[in-house]
């Protein structure tokens, strides 16, 4: 029983994030459509899209290499493993010790690295423009994210996500300036990393305005399905990360029973619904930025997280 329960929780977590990912994307789409007066696609539409894509033939460009065919699975796998390590409804994840928050950030970095390579593989200008811009955004978003991780780790005394969640759920936290700065930085980074509106537009297919979509333009069929699924998973991951760090209430502990876990899952679903609705609302209320305004936007995140970390360093001795 000692080993089985954490393993089951871990397995359930992996299945849950995978199963919920398209629904969250669908929910955001519905909210956005309703806010602009359309009815929008049904909640299950992303699932249907994935199944449709998976059944279609893959059309590969003539000079696509083996790497191009492997990358969708690598991107999916790295994102899924990263998502599996974020406590969503339970802290007692069996494998959470194998990768801490820094490693999760780096796993997402791996996914991005290979996705950008895929954009360069076929040799069209669209893929290149997407990869180039994605790496430019990442050059600012990743240090911002890491500095945010530093300030969390310094507050909680650990880079393990379960421990951080435990700490944030405790009463010792209170209101802290550096954690508030970290929250803003994390939200900005999450918007950029998930190619959401002020940075990128997930719905556009006008070549010059897109970043993520340009990078994956040559993908089709099951490969595209894997990439879309990975993108949805990444959205769930960031949403869960924000939830487990900044809304850590109601996450089941290690020794809790089945009922507590069930309640925690319900609460987690509620958090996701709120998060998805907030994202949809935010996206409709703001316009997309020009590409070279994005560095300023991400620079805000970088500066905020640096300030948060500096404050923690300095306040240690006060």
């Amino acid at each position: 029983m000692d080993l089985i329960a954490p393993l089951m929780v871990q397995g359930l977590q992996m299945a849950l994030v995978l199963a919920l990912a398209p629904a969250l994307t669908g929910l955001t789409r519905i909210v956005k459509a309703r806010l602009v007066g359309r009815r929008g696609p049904p909640l299950l539409q992303p699932y249907r899209d994935l199944i449709r894509l998976a059944r279609k033939d893959v059309v590969l460009a003539d000079n696509a290499s083996w790497l191009f065919r492997v990358i969708p699975y690598m991107v999916f796998a790295a994102t899924w493993v990263a998502a599996a390590l974020v406590p969503t409804f339970a802290k007692g994840l069996h494998f959470s010790w194998s990768a801490d928050l820094i490693a999760i950030v780096a796993l997402l970095g791996s996914a991005r690295f290979f996705q950008a390579l895929a954009g360069m593989d076929v040799g069209t200008a669209f893929g290149g423009i997407g990869s180039s811009r994605e790496m430019m955004f990442a050059a600012l978003a990743e240090p911002a994210m890491l500095l945010m991780v530093f300030s969390l780790a310094l507050s909680a005394g650990s880079t393990q996500l379960s421990t951080v969640a435990e700490f944030m759920g405790g009463s010792a936290v209170g209101l802290r300036v550096s954690i508030a700065m970290g929250l803003i930085a994390l939200v900005i980074v999450a918007l950029a990393e998930n190619a959401r509106v002020p940075v990128d537009n997930p719905a556009t297919h006008l070549e010059l305005t897109m970043v993520h979509e340009a990078m994956v333009l040559e993908y089709s069929g099951r490969h595209l399905a894997m990439i879309e699924l990975a993108a949805s998973l990444k959205l769930v991951l960031y949403m869960s990360l924000i939830a487990c760090i900044f809304l850590p209430w109601g996450i089941a502990g290690e020794g809790d029973g089945v009922i507590a876990h069930g309640a925690a899952i319900m609460l987690y679903l509620a958090k996701l619904v709120v998060g998805g609705a907030a994202l949809g609302f935010f996206e409709t209320s703001i316009a997309k930025m020009r590409v070279f305004r994005v560095p300023d936007f991400l620079g805000v995140a970088l500066m905020l997280s640096l300030l948060g970390t500096l404050l923690l360093f300095v306040s240690r001795s006060l």
Binding site: A54, R55, F95, S98, I102, S158, T159, A225
Partner: peptide, 30 residues
């Protein structure tokens, strides 16, 4: 309690979930 990292496990996990995804897609879909 502070931090730990396991490269082997991360490698095996990524390898397993990637090949599992490829296997499922190739078996069940196209």
């Amino acid at each position: 309690g502070r931090s730990s990292y396991n490269g082997l496990l991360v490698f095996v996990f990524v390898l397993m979930s990637g090949s599992m995804a490829a296997w499922v897609v190739h078996r069940a879909a196209s």
